[in-house]
Every structure is written in structure tokens, then in C-alpha cells.
Design a protein around this nucleic acid. Sequence first.
DNA 1: CGAGCACTTGATCGCTTTCAATAGCTGTGG
DNA 2: CCACAGCTATTGAAAGCGATCAAGTGCTCG
Lengths: 245, 245
Amino acid sequence: MQDHFAHVQCSDCPIRHRAVCARCDQDELNRLEQIKYYRSFQAGQTIIWSGDRMDFVGSVVSGIASLTQTMEDGRRQMVGLLLPSDFVGRPGRPTAAFDVTATTDVVMCCFRKKPFETLIAETPNIAQRLLEMTLDELDAAREWMLLLGRKTAREKIASLISIIVRREATLHKRKTARMLTVDLPLTREEMADYLGLTLETVSRQISALKKDGVISLEGNRHVSIPDIDRLLEEAGDDTDGGMLV
Amino acid sequence: MQDHFAHVQCSDCPIRHRAVCARCDQDELNRLEQIKYYRSFQAGQTIIWSGDRMDFVGSVVSGIASLTQTMEDGRRQMVGLLLPSDFVGRPGRPTAAFDVTATTDVVMCCFRKKPFETLIAETPNIAQRLLEMTLDELDAAREWMLLLGRKTAREKIASLISIIVRREATLHKRKTARMLTVDLPLTREEMADYLGLTLETVSRQISALKKDGVISLEGNRHVSIPDIDRLLEEAGDDTDGGMLV
DNA sequence: CGAGCACTTGATCGCTTTCAATAGCTGTGG
DNA sequence: CCACAGCTATTGAAAGCGATCAAGTGCTCG
């Protein structure tokens, strides 16, 4: 189980064209291959503790991990959602600044930190891709700041759902004209931690969106969206229309 | 006035050792020198409009600029505060994602985007420094997410003041054992935009902190902090003690 | 002296939180 | 097969915090 990915070649890797290694040529891949190893984590398991010494960096290969920050009295804020191909860790810093937790079962492609750092210094294709990914994450973090600082609970829920829909759409780019559906990868509590709400408010607002026909639910996790524009409107984002899919 | 910085040599630049050029050798500086130019902005002036075509990137040389995002109905959230040496713009993206506004009079050291992008590709010292700065900004953005999502109004104000104090301390590293003082570089409204509050709440909480002796005010902008640990406690941050200064 | 601006302060409203009870689902063991 | 524990989610009622609406203060600049 643990070794399911142990012998996957980079060239066969599902995140080959999106991860930090996306621009590497075969030669560079070979060098990465030498310092990489896979690790598996069960849902709920902590991958990295904030403040811990980081001896590796890596990419999420499958599953979903979350980046969270906790205050002394227990208040928690999720500050990032890590999907397949997302990068974990910070070259040039010895300790982790946030907790990283496996939200689902997770497989990570890890690189020992020191060798990876020297590789970065020598491999512009990796450094540039990492810069690009980091800039993307920064933009995403700043959009999230608008959500946390200014949006209502209802808008927050609608925003979260539309972001999940968008990510689904970019990953498996199926242009089914049918009704959009997604599975929420998070519990109500995790959504609350992500949105800066309580789990009760999350539940209430989901019920309200359902009652108003913006979404419909089958079970607790499966969401259908009859009218994506309506959802985007509820999210309070610029409604410049169907840039989705 | 506009040309005040027109002929400043990089080697004489006040942000030489902190900006994106920090690690450049003399040869690399010469190449930057060829594509750089200075621009001045008055307080209140917009430097870049969100969505606009970006034909330059650059560093804040002096003054303070802010990065803001605005919703259609006018709700605003500041998503970054740009101090001297901070980098503006995104290599590899044609349009700006946020508004950039001069909070005080600002001087920027600009590079035409295209030449800068090729320079990045050829100059690891610049690319690496930019990656490092971007990672720092990402961490800062994530800390801000905790503030926006989970902190009370009082904690937000205390956090903002302590961050300003910390930055002052790292810039002009004066270890005066005397009482710490800072000038707030923002109006109440700008603080509100940064903290996800209204200006009335900002004003009220500042008054409350004053009444409780956590801070004292001379005029509207000048703040004295009799007990920095007390302030940090009010900010709700980990009180692992005097890592300041 | 009055206009304009930044800020403060007061009173009230309303959204989200808090506290609490209940429902639904899953797995375990008698 | 049912009872029950444990967990997640929903729903209700009440409280609290920050927003909103509204005056009023203090300062600068014409």
C-alpha cells in the first residue's frame, strides 16, 4: 500500500505536466528521479506540523491536503487547499510555518530538501516553474483575503462551491452541457475553517442555497448546480460571464 | 521633482540590498541599469488599475503603496501593503490582478516587462531572489488570512500595530530601550480596508486600546507602546516572547 | 469664518456565533 | 436484527459583535 507509487517513472506520473517538474526535460527528470520518493498518508493524518524541521519538500500526487493555522485558544483558519500537483514546502527555510494535514488519503512525491535546493539553483526550468506556481498561489491567497474580509456567509459558501467546480472543470476537462455536479471534498467543519465561519453557519447557508434553488444536494457531499451563472452571482464575483470551462 | 531619482546609480540605491536586485553582482546591475527608469506618484494616485495591461514591473523605492481588490458594490479589501523594496507586478502575466495605489508619495524603480522577463530567464540571482520574496509574501498573505478569518476587531487592530512596529524595527534597526513609537502610515479607512472592518470599528477599537493603556496616541497617527508584550498578547499571536528587535 | 476632511462617539440593527437539541448515518456487539 | 455509541450534519433560540445610520468634534486650508 505504502509502496503503491514506489516505482512510478516521472514520465508516467499523473501530475507530470502540472507540477513543479512540468518544464523539465528528460535529463532533468532523471536527476529528480534520483532524489524522489513517495509517501502515503491516511485521511486525517498530519503530514507536517507547524514549527517542525522540514527535511523534504514535494508535490501532492493524489488526494487533498490542507494548510492550516491554529491560535492558542483553538481558533483555526485554513490558509490553503492543496490539490494534486500543488507544491508543499519552502526551499530555503528550515521549519514549516503551517500545519499540513491530509484531508483525504494522500500520496506525495517528496524530494529531500538539500538536494532539491541545489537542483533548483542549477535548473532554471524548475526554479521558473516554482516561481510561477508560487505567484499563482499568491494571487489565490489574495482572492481568498477578499472573501474572508468582505463577503457574507452566503457569498462565502457560493464562492467555495464555484471554486471547487472550476477546479473540477480544469482537471477533467469534460464539457458536459448537462447539469454541473461536484463532490465537496471537505466536511462542514473544514469548510468552516476555510471560510472563516462556524460549521453551523456553513450548514445553514448550504440549506438556504438549497431552499432557494441555487444548488441541490444528494447526501451531504454531492452538489448539483442547475445554473452556474446564478451561483457565480451569489458568490459576488465579477459576473463577466462564462469564463468557466 | 519627477526626475529626482532619474540618475541614481543602482549601487547608491537605498533598497539595493533588499529588493529583487539584492543578490546581483556589478555586471548584472549594469544590465538592470539599462532597462530601469524611475516613476513618481502622488499620494492617492493609482499606479496600476486591475485588469490593465502591465507593461512594466518594478520595486517600491520610497513611500507606501497598497494592493486592493474591489467588489462591484464597492466593498473593498486591501490584500497587500507595499513598502520600500517590495516588488510590484508579475512576470509572465499580461494584465494586473489588483489595483495598486500610492498611499503616500511613492517612487518606483520600473523595468520594462519584456526585457525584465528575459533577464530573469538568464539571471538566476534575480530569479532566486524573486522566488524568495514571493514565498515571503505568500507566508505573509496566509498569516493575514488568519487575521481576517478568525481574529476579533480588537485583535486585528493590535495585530496591525504590532506588524507596523516590527517593520519599523527591521528597517531602522534602532534598539532604543525607550518606549516604542510608530507613525501609522494609513488613514482609519485604509486600516479598515486592510483589516476587513469599517472605519468606525477601527476608530472605536483604537480608542478602546488607548483607554485600556495598551497604546497611547499623540494626534491621530502617532502611537506609543508602553509594553510591547502586552500589545502582542492583545494581538492574539503566539506569545513566545521578545523575538522583536 | 466656513468648507472640507479625518476622526470620534452614540444608538440601533442584523448577521453570525454560541449554546443546545435533534436527525441521520455507520459500525459494533449482544 | 435491533440497540447503541459515535460521528456528522441540521435546526432552533438567544446572545454578542461589528455594521449601519447619524451627530458631533477637531483640524487644515481657503
